[in-house]
């Protein structure tokens, strides 16, 4: 076959892509289980920070596809014990937004615990959301009621509070 005929070129590219695909397939088969285990471990590690006395197996991952489809800020849902539902949320803020966990007691609608995982907003202003004072101001409050935002950092804290209110409406429906 002529080396510059279109058929030869197409065949050559196809073979190259085939070999590349094979290499990728085997690399994926090798690493996919490790990556999945890593991701689960990383997620549960932040849950452990909320409940230091718990063990990693106490948290049950809830199949939350429907919830995530209806509520775009929700990233994941976990159950801890019979009553507590933990939501992982990502909301936009002033710049980078906030990723946080909130644990809501589904029976009496109180906030059991709050933990900000990361905040990409202005350091010293929006980042106050990651400080203990904010988490303490939420603990024990009614999750569906009015919650205090951080003065001076409303662009960061309002979406967080709104997301908590939203989670409060979902919590009783999680099984």
């Amino acid at each position: 076959m002529n080396k510059s005929s279109p058929a030869y070129l197409a065949l050559f590219l196809a073979i190259t892509a085939g070999i590349a695909g094979g290499a990728l397939y085997s690399a994926n088969a090798l690493t996919a289980p490790v990556i999945k285990a890593n991701a689960e471990k990383a997620e549960k590690a932040s849950l452990l920070e909320m409940y230091p006395d718990a063990s990693i197996d106490d948290f049950v991952v809830v199949d939350a596809e429907d919830i995530i489809a209806d509520h775009p800020s929700v990233q994941g849902v976990y159950k801890y014990g019979d009553d507590i539902v933990i939501f992982k949320n990502a909301v936009s803020g002033y710049d980078g937004g906030t990723v946080f966990l909130v644990a809501i007691n589904a029976t009496d609608d109180t906030i059991d615990s709050f933990k900000a995982i990361s905040n990409g907003d202005t350091k010293g202003i929006g980042s106050k959301i990651t400080e203990n004072a904010f988490a303490e101001s939420l603990a024990g409050k009614q999750a569906s009621g009015e919650l205090d935002t951080i003065s001076g950092a409303t662009l960061t804290s309002t979406p967080v509070v709104e997301a908590i209110n939203e989670c409060a409406t979902i919590a009783p429906t999680v099984e």
Partner: peptide, 22 residues
């Protein structure tokens, strides 16, 4: 052809990093 080769190598490296240095 070069791009396919390079992209394959990079993707493999990316998967290895994800797995062993998250």
């Amino acid at each position: 052809v070069y791009i396919v080769i390079i992209a394959t190598l990079v993707k493999i490296i990316q998967m290895l990093i994800q797995a062993y240095a998250p």
